[in-house]
Amino acid sequence: MSIQIIKAGILDTVQDGGRFGYQHLGINPSGAMDKYAMYIANALVGNHPEEAVIEMHFPASVFLFGYPALIAISGADFSATINGDPVAHLHPVWVNKNDVLQFHRPVYGARAYLAIAGGLDISKWLGSYSTNLKAKAGGCHGRNLQKGDEILLCQSFPSTPGQSEFIVLPWKADDQREDIPNEIWVLPGHEWHRLTTESKENFTMTSFVITQQSDRMGYRLNNIPLPAMTNEELVSSAVSFGTVQLLPDGKLIILMADHQTTGGYPRIAHAITAHHSKLAQRRAGDKIQFRITEQAIAENLYLQQQQHLQQLRNACTFRLQQYFNG
């Protein structure tokens, strides 16, 4: 029971909900950039929400299934095919032995997720399957997937009836694609007051381009410099996914899943957790716009997402049982 990488993508890694409890040792949480998408993919195949998935960037790997499996693809739409035939996004898909999954075009978003029913048979490092690229640990040998890698699966699955074609199961997750994909809501950070009045205005009134120097650690933004009123140094303290730091040259960086555990740059804002998913789907070259919101709204939006996911899990469990146990 395995899948094999027959062509490597640019940056495909094994990720899960993240490695928590080790930040006091400087070990960052890693984990899926778009956890919401990861939860959806896992729900579609009936997995535990935090089960290991494969996070893909474009161009993505080409996968060969060594065994039948139930899979789902979520997050970015890279126009997937199996054996050359288009395969629907956000559906459970039943594949056979020797099926080849590949991705052709980045239609939407930056990161796609592949979940496989039963999960990946790899060992955890410090309680998590996530790949920590810096520490070269976790996931598949602590690195991105390479040609020839074979990942064992935890669960065997029967072939499709007739064993010929893959089957797209007839239900779909509502991905609730955001209506304003470029708008990222933030809460003011502790050093927000350091910005001049003009900088504050520019922060919310102008848009910010995500530069090429953006990766799983963080997005560097190309913005008109935002001068601060003071450059008083800060001693290092904790920073988080979504923290917007002001660099000495007035440019901004948004910390993402592989962020450092601590930092000493002014924290002028924090992207709300409910918007981490849409932030993770923005690509280099995309423009984003910040909008300041408040804690109560941030909390409600996050809870709504969690409720939506729970409903999806319940529905998927029911549909999968019906489908396979009739």
């Binding site: 928590f20 409890g21 930040q23 006091h24 001693v235 290092s236 303290s237 904790a238 988080s240 555990t261 601590t262 957790t273 909390e299 996050y302 809870l303 969690q306």
Partner: peptide
Amino acid sequence: MTELVPAYSSLTVYFDLPKVK
């Protein structure tokens, strides 16, 4: 609480938002 991160002169407490809510 989900995680504690001590630094030079600060202590950060991460928490499970839905649970606390």
